[in-house]
Amino acid sequence: MVRDLGWNQVDTVYTHHDRILDFDVFVLVTNGRMQVVEGTTEYIIQEKEHLFLKKGLHHWGRPETLPGTSWFWVHFISPEYDSPSYKEHAPLAEIDFFYPDHYAYRFPMPKHGTSPFHRTLENKLQLLVEDFGKPTEHGMVQLSIQVYQLFLQLHKSMKEHSHSTRNSGKGETVAGRVMTFLMQHSDEDFDSEKLSNHLNLNYSYISATFKTQTGLSVIETHTKLRINKAMDWMRSTSLNVSEISEKLGYKNPYYFSRVFKKVIGESPSAYMSHFYKS
């Protein structure tokens, strides 16, 4: 939720304010460089770099920000979600059914740095500054949505930039290879030995690494992929529950129905009743 935002430029040596805020701050330096300390950690924000400052921490600086330095800033408030149901991993893109718990996750923003996206960030922020304060209906809501989208783009760009500037280690490739295998075998029962042989890795290592990177177990992901395929057939075909169960390799439709209800929260027939079919 945006509190305020703007642009600033200094003509003399600048010292960052000594303060503790009850809101978060986003800074993008567009020219020069800025020095700021958060708690006991010093940051030098170079041109086309950003920094997030977290609320409740002591922010201060020394007279080291160069004359001519300019920057955009956004002051915003992040709701506090202390619920243990909020996951630390984003949902897997391949599992695309959306229920309320799909959105119950949090993700960390990149604290400090730059990426190719930062080259266009200045223009995007300039447009937001021009819109800020205009007397339009729902203006601050629209502005907050735009800032949220901007932060999502920043998150994606920094993640992609990080992957492209360093070699992926063995562990980082496991989740992708597992997902490829599971998607190719979503119409059959899970076979840990088959997966282990395919990846030429110990299954205990595969299982632990996948869980760390995705927040889900391999078996849980395989089950959700199967149910996802079942849901797609329910939406787009005239197959009945028994036919779908058989196509997915379940031993009997009653077991399939139990699994479906456990994952989705309602029976296959109840789910199918939501769609308009001739």
Rank of each mutant, 00 (worst) to 15 (best):
L150R: 02
R166A: 10
V74D: 01
G171F: 00
D24E: 14
S217D: 12
P91M: 06
Q9N: 08
M1K: 12
I20L: 09
P100R: 07
Q146R: 14
K277S: 11
F117A: 01
H75M: 00
S186E: 04
K111G: 00
L125M: 14
V74H: 01
S278E: 06
P79W: 06
K159L: 05
S269D: 09
I264C: 03
F260S: 03
V259F: 13
V27F: 01
L154P: 00
D24T: 12
K159A: 13
I45V: 14
K48R: 14
L21S: 03
M1D: 08
I206G: 01
D11W: 13
M34D: 01
G215K: 06
N197G: 10
M231C: 11
V147H: 02
G133F: 07
E38L: 15
Y14M: 04
Y81F: 11
S162M: 02
T180D: 08
S115F: 04
W71N: 01
K277V: 09
M272Q: 12
T41F: 12
V141Y: 09
L154D: 09
Y105F: 14
S192Y: 08
T12M: 09
M158N: 09
D187K: 01
R19V: 15
L121C: 13
K247L: 07
T12G: 13
V36W: 09
V37G: 10
H138E: 00
P135N: 05
T114H: 08
L125H: 09
T136N: 03
K55M: 12
G39K: 01
L201P: 15
Q153Y: 06
Y255E: 15
V10K: 08
E193Q: 14
R166V: 05
N167I: 07
Q9F: 03
H58K: 15
Y276A: 13
S207E: 01
S204N: 08
L143K: 07
A90P: 06
P135Y: 03
E94G: 07
T41H: 14
D187A: 04
K170L: 03
H58V: 00
K247N: 11
D191C: 12
R226W: 01
E42Q: 14
N31P: 02
V36I: 14
I20Q: 15
R226V: 00
A230N: 05
I206A: 10
N31S: 15
E94T: 00
K170C: 06
V141P: 02
D4K: 07
Q153M: 10
F52K: 05
F256H: 11
E266K: 15
T223G: 04
L248M: 10
Y43C: 14
R106A: 03
K211Y: 01
I145V: 11
G249R: 03
H17G: 11
G139H: 00
Y86W: 07
G61K: 01
L152R: 08
S144I: 11
